[in-house]
Write a protein that binds this DNA or RNA. Structure first.
Lengths: 214, 214
DNA sequence: ACCGAACTACTACTTTGGGAGTAGTTTACG
DNA sequence: CGTAAACTACTCCCAAAGTAGTAGTTCGGT
């Protein structure tokens, strides 16, 4: 069997964790960490530049978060396999990541040996999911069945940002300031988002949103 | 000045992170990692056995979580200083940790140099808090004020009926019809109820209500 | 090169929401 | 009996929300 080298790009805003992972992976002759990024923007740039076999992507980053980064990477036609590496075993995070095109989802408390094995398998084109998440995933499929109506995923990024602010009680004006766009533009998004979700007012949107996330 | 050695116990269920931190701290001559624990139970045992100067404690662990561990340590009369080391900048986590007797709260995305400095200062008896948390902390004090404020019980029967309808997304006009009173009257009640609850709009009222009942 | 989706921003208009004030009625309580 | 709280309803006024239509930009995909 030919021993190919797997190239890896680490994306995580925790310097210490990057250090730990890098140290671990450097011990493996067939795995090479060719880059590190501390945020989504850098990650996208580096990914295009280095075309790593695999991107190990943290979910919780400030600025552009993991999911946004993932989506951006996919939109930029980055061919690297992307494995999310997160502390969260929340089904929403897992499902969102996979829906957004992640090739795997590993928990940060994974044992080192298992992490290494998973990276190899991911580079070979397999999908890798931490064992602990099987139950979580199974349950989330059942959830999907009952929520047939339109949901958050039918919203665009902007609309999603805006409905979140609505669910915090912000006015259009304030939302505009937060997102640095005109109030009139916010109104357009609100109108569209209400129509998509079949709601009649921002109050209903706020309620819907709050109940959603519980 | 006498150069004392600071002894540290790492408590975190992520092997990789422990590895990263240990590697970092081992480079400092005045800091010595004398033990590692992957869970709360081990942490308590080791703390009693080793009496480290400082315990760097992760919040999110399976089994006994960070806060439980912290409380247990305090109950066991462990004199070591305890600094929470967490990814979470959620004000609840921060406040709970400090209330439970933590001597500091550092975010995991702290820069290595800053982490080392903070550890030294913590060992010197100072309280160390990540800069990013100042705002969070300040806000949480305001929250406290507001939670001392009135609740549902301070509302009259009418106001209670009306806020319930608001939390179902109804307009003043519709509420008026439901209760067979004029829209103008509904407005009066809404105005009064907003003032009592210290809210700024019906949207906030709806959110507050929905979160209340769950 | 063209198309469509998303995002932006405007004008113009209507409806809804919310503040402030006045005031009449009912009801419970000392 | 008097009074205070709750409920009712109005007016006036302005701010916020929401609808409709036009239109420019950017960006990814066919």
């Amino acid at each position: 069997m030919t021993q190919t080298t797997h190239t890896v790009l680490l994306v995580d805003d925790h310097p210490l964790l990057r250090k730990g992972v890098r140290q671990l992976l450097d011990l493996e002759i067939d795995i090479k960490v060719i880059g590190e990024a501390a945020n989504g923007k850098d990650a996208v740039v580096l990914a295009k530049e280095l075309t790593p076999d695999l991107i190990l992507l943290d979910l919780s980053m400030k600025g552009m978060d993991g999911i946004e980064t993932l989506v951006t990477l996919r939109e930029a036609n980055v061919k690297s396999r992307v494995v999310v590496f997160s502390v969260s075993d929340d089904s929403n995070d897992v499902v969102t990541a996979l829906k957004s095109g992640a090739d795997g989802y590993l928990l940060k408390d994974t044992e080192p040996e298992e992490l290494i094995e998973s990276i190899r398998r991911a580079c070979d084109g397999k999908m890798v999911i931490s064992d602990e998440l099987n139950e979580v995933l199974a349950l989330s499929f059942r959830e999907q069945q009952k929520s047939l109506g339109p949901d958050l995923n039918s919203l665009t990024r902007r609309e999603l940002q805006i409905i979140k602010y609505i669910a915090e009680g912000l006015s259009n004006k304030l939302i505009g300031r937060k997102l640095d766009i005109a109030e009139s533009t916010v109104k357009v998004h609100v109108k569209n988002l209400l129509k998509k979700l079949n709601l009649r007012s921002r109050v209903e949107a706020a309620i819907w949103m709050v109940e959603q996330k519980k």
